[in-house]
Design a protein around this nucleic acid. Sequence first.
DNA 1: AAATGATCCAACCGCAGCGAT
DNA 2: TATCGCTGCGGTTGGATCATT
Length: 241
Amino acid sequence: MKSVQEEYRKGPWTEQEDILLVNFVHMFGDRRWDFVAKVSGLNRTGKSCRLRWVNYLHPGLKRGKMTPEEERLVLELHAKWGNRWSKIARKLPGRTDNEIKNYWRTHMRKKAQEKKRPMSPTSSSSNCCSSSMTTAATQDTGGSNVKMNQECEEDGYYSMDDIWREIDQSGSNIIKPVKDIYYSEQSCYLDFPPLASPAWESSMESIWNMDADESKMSSFAIDQFPLSFEHDRSSSWSSLL
DNA sequence: AAATGATCCAACCGCAGCGAT
DNA sequence: TATCGCTGCGGTTGGATCATT
């Protein structure tokens, strides 16, 4: 066992790490994070890899500002479910719980400040749905409203996979793959193959149990994705594709 | 142009739940 | 049934960036 504090990397991810992670997730799927972390040679915990993938690297992610419609939904669902961010996120394809959480915090802070100030005609302009907003705000503290709707998952449980699948299937043009957006700024376009399907994942099942393969995979990682390439995004990404 | 405050966002932490053994 | 390891969730923090003075 390696000591967490001295062996694992922390802090911001480098571009090289992102590349490695993306490639290994495409090879092995986004489930076995400890395995991916180990075989990729990334000095990160599985947890850290998962977070990076889910919140930043996943191709289905929608970047940029929340649309008014999304804002409305967030407010509405928060009023209904409280701080169940992942649950709320399931209703907003392409948005992550982290993103929504962050949005809400900012929103709430603004709201709190507005409350402190005396009401003015202009202050309402930034508030698209004040009624649900107020409800949510008052219910939020303590999360007392959370249980209220716990059993009202009328359409059943959605995993993140289900959501991404939906996005894929709908061929929605609302959602721009994160890499497109992120790297198009640097004039670099990426077109990853689809994620590992459960079918092929099961065919790869044996891999998960082969400890001996881990060392192979590690050397593969090093061979395929050396960590010493240029800083130039476009060249480094395109060289892998 | 510099200083300060506000906002955004990526990442970490701790905990709970779940499945495997 | 107890334990262990992994995954996912919610809360929190800190750095980067933007806006204002």
